[in-house]
Protein backbone atom coordinates (compact mmCIF):
# COMPACT_ATOMS: atom_id res chain seq x y z
CA UNK A 1 0.00 0.00 0.00
CA UNK A 2 1.77 3.13 -1.11
CA UNK A 3 1.91 6.32 0.96
CA UNK A 4 1.82 9.57 -0.94
CA UNK A 5 2.45 13.09 0.34
CA UNK A 6 1.12 15.91 -1.81
CA UNK A 7 2.25 19.45 -0.98
CA UNK A 8 2.33 18.59 2.71
CA UNK A 9 3.24 21.43 5.06
CA UNK A 10 3.16 21.51 8.82
CA UNK A 11 3.52 24.48 11.13
CA UNK A 12 3.96 24.20 14.89
CA UNK A 13 2.15 26.90 16.86
CA UNK A 14 0.85 28.75 13.79
CA UNK A 15 0.21 32.50 14.06
CA UNK A 16 2.14 32.83 17.35
CA UNK A 17 5.61 34.07 18.16
CA UNK A 18 6.74 30.44 18.37
CA UNK A 19 5.64 29.56 14.86
CA UNK A 20 7.94 26.98 13.28
CA UNK A 21 7.53 25.68 9.75
CA UNK A 22 8.54 22.09 10.40
CA UNK A 23 7.59 20.80 6.96
CA UNK A 24 7.43 22.80 3.76
CA UNK A 25 5.70 21.48 0.70
CA UNK A 26 6.69 17.84 0.88
CA UNK A 27 5.97 15.71 -2.16
CA UNK A 28 6.93 12.08 -2.12
CA UNK A 29 5.62 8.61 -2.75
CA UNK A 30 6.58 5.48 -0.87
CA UNK A 31 5.99 2.27 -2.78
CA UNK A 32 5.35 -1.22 -1.44
CA UNK A 33 8.29 -3.33 -0.23
CA UNK A 34 10.75 -0.44 -0.22
CA UNK A 35 13.59 -0.11 2.28
CA UNK A 36 13.95 3.62 2.73
CA UNK A 37 16.33 5.59 4.88
CA UNK A 38 15.60 9.07 6.19
CA UNK A 39 18.41 11.27 7.48
CA UNK A 40 18.54 14.85 8.66
CA UNK A 41 20.10 16.66 11.60
CA UNK A 42 18.18 17.26 14.82
CA UNK A 43 15.30 19.59 14.03
CA UNK A 44 15.30 18.98 10.26
CA UNK A 45 11.69 17.80 10.31
CA UNK A 46 12.22 14.07 9.89
CA UNK A 47 10.36 13.07 13.05
CA UNK A 48 7.50 15.39 12.13
CA UNK A 49 7.38 13.80 8.69
CA UNK A 50 7.18 10.19 9.89
CA UNK A 51 4.42 11.06 12.34
CA UNK A 52 2.38 12.22 9.37
CA UNK A 53 2.64 8.78 7.79
CA UNK A 54 0.38 7.17 10.37
CA UNK A 55 -1.78 10.19 11.08
CA UNK A 56 -0.34 11.08 14.47
CA UNK A 57 -0.05 14.61 13.11
CA UNK A 58 -2.46 16.29 10.74
CA UNK A 59 -0.81 18.41 8.05
CA UNK A 60 -1.46 22.16 8.18
CA UNK A 61 -1.96 21.98 4.44
CA UNK A 62 -1.66 19.37 1.71
CA UNK A 63 -2.87 15.78 1.48
CA UNK A 64 -1.58 12.41 2.56
CA UNK A 65 -2.87 9.43 0.63
CA UNK A 66 -2.62 5.86 1.83
CA UNK A 67 -3.45 3.41 -0.91
CA UNK A 68 -4.99 6.26 -2.87
CA UNK A 69 -7.29 7.44 -0.08
CA UNK A 70 -7.02 10.71 1.80
CA UNK A 71 -6.21 9.70 5.38
CA UNK A 72 -7.79 12.89 6.70
CA UNK A 73 -10.93 12.38 4.61
CA UNK A 74 -14.25 12.50 6.43
CA UNK A 75 -15.03 8.82 6.76
CA UNK A 76 -11.50 7.53 6.74
CA UNK A 77 -10.72 4.92 9.38
CA UNK A 78 -7.46 6.12 10.90
CA UNK A 79 -7.50 3.34 13.45
CA UNK A 80 -6.95 0.79 10.71
CA UNK A 81 -4.30 2.99 9.20
CA UNK A 82 -2.38 3.09 12.47
CA UNK A 83 -2.28 -0.67 12.70
CA UNK A 84 -1.12 -0.97 9.09
CA UNK A 85 1.53 1.71 9.43
CA UNK A 86 3.46 0.89 12.60
CA UNK A 87 5.76 3.40 14.24
CA UNK A 88 8.47 2.44 16.71
CA UNK A 89 9.81 5.48 18.52
CA UNK A 90 13.36 6.14 19.50
CA UNK A 91 13.18 5.60 23.25
CA UNK A 92 11.84 2.10 23.85
CA UNK A 93 11.67 2.65 27.59
CA UNK A 94 8.89 5.15 26.91
CA UNK A 95 6.88 2.57 25.06
CA UNK A 96 6.89 -0.38 27.43
CA UNK A 97 4.40 -0.22 30.27
CA UNK A 98 2.99 -3.67 31.05
CA UNK A 99 4.10 -6.00 33.85
CA UNK A 100 5.81 -8.41 31.53
CA UNK A 101 7.12 -8.32 27.99
CA UNK A 102 4.58 -10.73 26.51
CA UNK A 103 1.60 -8.72 27.84
CA UNK A 104 3.20 -5.59 26.53
CA UNK A 105 3.50 -6.98 23.04
CA UNK A 106 -0.08 -8.35 23.27
CA UNK A 107 -1.42 -4.86 23.91
CA UNK A 108 -1.35 -3.81 20.24
CA UNK A 109 -3.20 -6.78 18.76
CA UNK A 110 -5.70 -6.73 21.68
CA UNK A 111 -6.35 -3.11 20.88
CA UNK A 112 -7.16 -4.24 17.38
CA UNK A 113 -9.92 -6.41 18.83
CA UNK A 114 -8.20 -9.74 19.44
CA UNK A 115 -8.68 -11.59 22.73
CA UNK A 116 -5.64 -12.34 24.85
CA UNK A 117 -5.71 -15.95 23.60
CA UNK A 118 -5.69 -14.79 19.99
CA UNK A 119 -3.13 -12.07 20.60
CA UNK A 120 -0.57 -14.26 22.34
CA UNK A 121 0.53 -16.31 19.31
CA UNK A 122 0.95 -13.07 17.34
CA UNK A 123 3.00 -11.60 20.17
CA UNK A 124 5.18 -14.69 20.48
CA UNK A 125 5.77 -14.75 16.75
CA UNK A 126 6.72 -11.06 16.69
CA UNK A 127 9.10 -11.40 19.63
CA UNK A 128 10.87 -14.36 18.08
CA UNK A 129 11.10 -12.54 14.76
CA UNK A 130 13.08 -9.71 16.30
CA UNK A 131 15.36 -12.16 18.06
CA UNK A 132 13.90 -11.84 21.55
CA UNK A 133 14.64 -14.95 23.60
CA UNK A 134 11.67 -17.00 24.82
CA UNK A 135 13.14 -17.34 28.33
CA UNK A 136 12.74 -13.56 28.76
CA UNK A 137 9.10 -13.36 27.67
CA UNK A 138 7.76 -13.05 31.21
CA UNK A 139 10.39 -10.65 32.49
CA UNK A 140 9.43 -7.15 33.55
CA UNK A 141 10.43 -4.50 30.98
CA UNK A 142 12.55 -2.95 33.76
CA UNK A 143 14.76 -6.03 33.88
CA UNK A 144 15.72 -5.77 30.23
CA UNK A 145 18.89 -4.41 28.72
CA UNK A 146 18.74 -1.54 26.23
CA UNK A 147 18.93 -3.90 23.25
CA UNK A 148 16.20 -6.15 24.64
CA UNK A 149 13.94 -3.16 25.28
CA UNK A 150 14.37 -2.04 21.70
CA UNK A 151 13.53 -5.50 20.43
CA UNK A 152 10.47 -5.69 22.66
CA UNK A 153 9.28 -2.27 21.46
CA UNK A 154 9.72 -3.24 17.80
CA UNK A 155 7.92 -6.54 18.46
CA UNK A 156 5.04 -4.56 19.98
CA UNK A 157 4.57 -2.79 16.68
CA UNK A 158 5.24 -5.88 14.58
CA UNK A 159 2.60 -7.93 16.43
CA UNK A 160 -0.07 -5.76 14.84
CA UNK A 161 1.04 -7.11 11.45
CA UNK A 162 1.80 -3.75 9.90
CA UNK A 163 2.36 -3.41 6.18
CA UNK A 164 4.71 -0.53 6.76
CA UNK A 165 7.13 -0.31 9.65
CA UNK A 166 8.68 3.02 10.58
CA UNK A 167 11.66 2.88 12.92
CA UNK A 168 13.03 6.03 14.51
CA UNK A 169 16.67 5.31 15.34
CA UNK A 170 16.16 1.72 16.37
CA UNK A 171 19.82 1.20 17.21
CA UNK A 172 20.88 4.29 19.19
CA UNK A 173 22.95 3.20 22.16
CA UNK A 174 23.42 -0.39 21.05
CA UNK A 175 26.78 -2.08 20.70
CA UNK A 176 27.94 -2.87 17.14
CA UNK A 177 26.85 -6.50 17.22
CA UNK A 178 23.42 -5.60 18.60
CA UNK A 179 23.13 -2.93 15.92
CA UNK A 180 23.89 -5.35 13.07
CA UNK A 181 21.68 -7.97 14.63
CA UNK A 182 18.57 -5.80 14.85
CA UNK A 183 19.11 -4.32 11.41
CA UNK A 184 19.65 -7.77 9.87
CA UNK A 185 16.36 -8.89 11.36
CA UNK A 186 14.60 -5.78 10.06
CA UNK A 187 16.05 -6.40 6.59
CA UNK A 188 14.67 -9.93 6.80
CA UNK A 189 11.19 -8.62 7.63
CA UNK A 190 11.44 -6.55 4.50
CA UNK A 191 12.67 -9.34 2.21
CA UNK A 192 10.71 -12.27 3.67
CA UNK A 193 7.47 -10.70 4.87
CA UNK A 194 7.50 -7.95 2.27
CA UNK A 195 7.01 -5.21 4.86
CA UNK A 196 7.96 -1.71 3.73
CA UNK A 197 10.64 -0.36 6.05
CA UNK A 198 11.30 3.31 6.73
CA UNK A 199 14.44 3.72 8.80
CA UNK A 200 15.38 7.00 10.46
CA UNK A 201 19.05 6.90 11.41
CA UNK A 202 22.09 9.00 12.25
CA UNK A 203 24.39 6.25 11.06
CA UNK A 204 25.36 6.79 7.44
CA UNK A 205 27.15 3.44 7.47
CA UNK A 206 23.91 1.63 8.36
CA UNK A 207 21.94 3.60 5.77
CA UNK A 208 24.48 2.70 3.09
CA UNK A 209 24.44 -0.96 4.03
CA UNK A 210 20.70 -1.55 4.28
CA UNK A 211 18.59 0.95 2.38
CA UNK A 212 18.04 1.32 -1.34
CA UNK A 213 16.53 4.77 -1.28
CA UNK A 214 17.55 7.69 0.87
CA UNK A 215 15.55 10.78 1.72
CA UNK A 216 17.48 13.71 3.17
CA UNK A 217 15.57 16.32 5.17
CA UNK A 218 16.87 19.80 5.84
CA UNK A 219 14.95 22.74 7.31
CA UNK A 220 11.62 21.06 6.67
CA UNK A 221 12.30 20.20 3.05
CA UNK A 222 13.27 17.10 1.14
CA UNK A 223 16.64 18.03 -0.35
CA UNK A 224 17.64 14.65 -1.77
CA UNK A 225 15.58 11.59 -2.63
CA UNK A 226 17.75 9.09 -4.47
CA UNK A 227 19.85 5.95 -4.22
CA UNK A 228 22.16 6.24 -1.16
CA UNK A 229 25.38 6.27 -3.21
CA UNK A 230 24.01 9.11 -5.35
CA UNK A 231 23.10 11.10 -2.25
CA UNK A 232 26.46 10.44 -0.60
CA UNK A 233 28.26 11.76 -3.68
CA UNK A 234 27.05 15.18 -2.46
CA UNK A 235 28.99 14.74 0.78
CA UNK A 236 30.16 18.33 0.85
CA UNK A 237 26.57 19.59 0.75
CA UNK A 238 25.57 16.99 3.36
CA UNK A 239 28.22 18.33 5.72
CA UNK A 240 26.78 21.82 5.40
CA UNK A 241 23.49 20.35 6.64
CA UNK A 242 25.12 18.84 9.71
CA UNK A 243 25.29 15.40 8.12
CA UNK A 244 28.06 13.32 6.65
CA UNK A 245 28.72 10.42 4.31
CA UNK A 246 30.05 6.99 5.34
CA UNK A 247 33.83 6.85 5.95
CA UNK A 248 34.16 4.74 2.81
CA UNK A 249 32.75 7.52 0.61
CA UNK A 250 35.46 9.91 1.79
CA UNK A 251 38.12 7.29 1.19
CA UNK A 252 36.91 6.52 -2.33
CA UNK A 253 36.85 10.19 -3.25
CA UNK A 254 40.34 10.66 -1.82
CA UNK A 255 41.67 7.67 -3.78
CA UNK A 256 40.10 8.88 -6.99
CA UNK A 257 41.69 12.32 -6.57
CA UNK A 258 45.04 10.64 -6.21
CA UNK A 259 44.56 8.77 -9.45
CA UNK A 260 43.31 5.35 -8.39
CA UNK A 261 40.40 4.46 -10.74
CA UNK A 262 37.93 3.39 -8.03
CA UNK A 263 34.15 3.41 -8.25
CA UNK A 264 32.78 6.40 -6.34
CA UNK A 265 29.44 4.63 -5.95
CA UNK A 266 30.91 2.17 -3.45
CA UNK A 267 29.60 3.14 -0.02
CA UNK A 268 29.94 -0.07 1.98
CA UNK A 269 33.04 -1.99 3.05
CA UNK A 270 32.23 -4.90 0.75
CA UNK A 271 31.71 -2.73 -2.33
CA UNK A 272 34.77 -0.61 -1.58
CA UNK A 273 36.95 -3.66 -1.11
CA UNK A 274 35.88 -5.05 -4.49
CA UNK A 275 36.35 -1.75 -6.28
CA UNK A 276 39.77 -1.06 -4.75
CA UNK A 277 41.03 -4.54 -5.67
CA UNK A 278 39.87 -4.03 -9.23
CA UNK A 279 41.50 -0.59 -9.43
CA UNK A 280 44.77 -1.88 -7.96
CA UNK A 281 44.86 -4.58 -10.64
CA UNK A 282 44.16 -2.03 -13.35
CA UNK A 283 47.09 0.13 -12.35
CA UNK A 284 49.19 -3.01 -11.75
CA UNK A 285 49.90 -1.87 -8.20
CA UNK A 286 53.04 -3.19 -6.49
CA UNK A 287 50.83 -3.80 -3.43
CA UNK A 288 49.42 -6.84 -5.21
CA UNK A 289 52.73 -8.47 -6.15
CA UNK A 290 53.37 -11.92 -4.62
CA UNK A 291 50.63 -13.34 -2.46
CA UNK A 292 48.13 -11.51 -4.61
CA UNK A 293 47.59 -14.56 -6.78
CA UNK A 294 44.39 -15.74 -5.09
CA UNK A 295 42.66 -12.38 -5.63
Amino acid sequence: MPIECKDVSFTYAPATAYEIHALKNINLRIEDHEFIGIIGHTGSGKSTLIQHFNALIQPTSGTILYNGEDIWGQNYNRRTLRSEVGLAFQYPEHQLFENDVLSDVCFGPMNQGLTREEAEPEARKALLQVGFKEKNFLKSPFELSGGQKKRAAIAGVLAMNPKILILDEPTAGLDPRGRDNILDQIAELQSVRGITIILVSHSMEDIAKYTRRLIVMNQGEVVYDDAPHEVFSHYEELEKMGLAAPQVTYLMNGLKKRGLPVDLKADTVAEASKSILKALREVDSPLLKEGGSHV
Partner: peptide
Protein backbone atom coordinates in the same frame (compact mmCIF):
# COMPACT_ATOMS: atom_id res chain seq x y z
CA UNK B 1 39.56 -7.15 4.16
CA UNK B 2 41.97 -5.87 1.53
CA UNK B 3 44.94 -7.43 3.23
CA UNK B 4 43.01 -10.71 3.55
CA UNK B 5 42.56 -10.50 -0.22
CA UNK B 6 46.30 -10.20 -0.70
CA UNK B 7 46.95 -6.46 -0.75
CA UNK B 8 50.10 -5.62 1.15
CA UNK B 9 49.08 -3.09 3.77
Amino acid sequence: ELSQAGVKL
